[in-house]
């Protein structure tokens, strides 16, 4: 089992590396492998330097961070709701964050085609985390009736998601075209315009949260056994569930702050990982992180290049891949 895990991790890592290179190479301005290595060694032209370090590298790192945090959040949610199909996008956490950001954009921009101001950019992660926590609080409060029934948590989440999306639509329609396009980025999830600023802000938070989840992964394993067994083994279910929900919210919010509302990514990675290495979180989470990173990077490369110079939000590309898989999972589960 152990060998299999290392093998799987190794293969996933190699894949990630390959797609990392592919993503660096391809784009409106195509580079060659030699140019990339030269640039990394400090011998490239100024142009190459800008393309790699200014544009593509921060974007790739953002993608990996988003993939990592969403898949970890997915792992957590699937355990604490006892539903294989749970993930942060579907139960409205991402939508809460997106709504907060849309409100921020709507309240802060005056001119039609204005770029976002610096303080708006710096406020975004904070606001989106607040938004996700607001949504989580709403879901938790509404599904609380003599404790949390896992199934109810999901259903309430779907309802809250629908409600938040209706409010987002209202703001969307009242926006000018320029604002609308910026808001669209958040609503459908895109890595366009990632910069080092965002990466520096989000990377420490995300690594900390993932580290905490990983540290407590044994508790997640126990939760999987069911309420009675877990309580028998000395886990305070309500308390742990709340803690893990907090972690999931933090992760989903940071990911949304980086890239907007990306659905289904938190589903794909954990599931594929589980099929390969089994339901032990110590092994599942790292593999899920790598797989999700591969998926989002691949999807982002595709959305940048498929209809170039137009770009499709990566969240949309992922839904198009993710839903058929989701349906397949549902059909198989029967």
């Amino acid at each position: 089992m152990k060998n299999k895990t290392f093998l799987a991790l190794g293969i996933a890592l190699l894949l990630l590396l390959g797609i990392f290179l592919l993503s660096l190479l391809s784009g409106t301005y195509t580079l060659t492998l030699k140019e990339i290595f030269d640039t990394f060694l400090g011998k490239g032209t100024k142009m190459h330097h800008t393309v790699i370090f200014g544009l593509r590298l921060p974007r790739i790192i953002s993608a990996v961070l988003v993939g990592a945090s969403l898949s970890t959040a997915g792992c957590i949610l699937q355990s604490i709701t006892k539903n294989q199909l749970a993930e942060p996008g579907i139960i409205g956490l991402n939508a809460g964050a997106a709504l907060a950001v849309v409100l921020l954009i709507a309240s802060n921009s005056q001119n039609y085609y204005d770029a976002l101001g610096t303080h708006t950019i710096l406020l975004m992660p904070i606001v989106s985390i607040l938004g996700a926590f607001g949504a989580a609080l709403l879901i938790y409060g509404l599904s609380c009736r003599k404790g949390i029934a896992p199934n109810r948590l999901i259903l309430v989440g779907i309802g809250v998601n629908a409600g938040i999306n209706a409010v987002i639509t209202l703001y969307q329609l009242n926006m000018s075209k320029g604002d609308y396009n910026q808001a669209l980025t958040w609503i459908s999830g895109s890595l366009w315009g990632s910069s080092w600023q965002f990466v520096y802000m989000a990377a420490p938070i995300i690594s900390l949260l993932i580290g905490m989840t990983f540290y407590k992964s044994k508790v997640l394993d126990v939760i999987d056994l069911g309420d009675e067994l877990a309580t028998g083994l000395g886990v305070l279910m309500e308390k742990e569930r709340r803690k893990f929900l907090m972690l999931a919210v933090g992760l989903a919010a940071s990911a949304t702050a980086l890239a907007g509302n990306i659905a289904f990514l938190g589903l794909l990675g954990p599931h594929i990982a589980k099929r390969i290495v089994g339901p032990v979180h110590r092994r599942q989470i790292p593999l899920a992180i790598l797989i999700s990173a591969v998926i989002i990077l691949l999807a982002d490369t595709a959305s940048r290049n498929l209809f170039a110079p137009l770009e499709i939000p990566v969240g949309i590309t992922i839904s198009v891949i993710g839903v058929p898989y989701f349906i397949y999972l549902m059909a198989r589960e029967k």
Binding site: N83, L85, I90, N151, I154, L155, I158, N161, Y180, N181, L184, S188, A263, F264, F307, L310, I312, P313, G315, I316, T317, S319, V320, V323, P324, F326, I327, M330
Partner: peptide, 28 residues
């Protein structure tokens, strides 16, 4: 919950494809 999840998934899928088409024809 299963029917609801299936419905949510399908609607996301349809809207995503619609969004791609709308963006490409500048009608989002």
């Amino acid at each position: 919950s299963r029917l609801l999840l299936a419905g949510t998934a399908l609607s996301t899928f349809f809207l995503s494809l619609a969004m791609i088409i709308a963006m490409l024809s500048n009608k989002s």
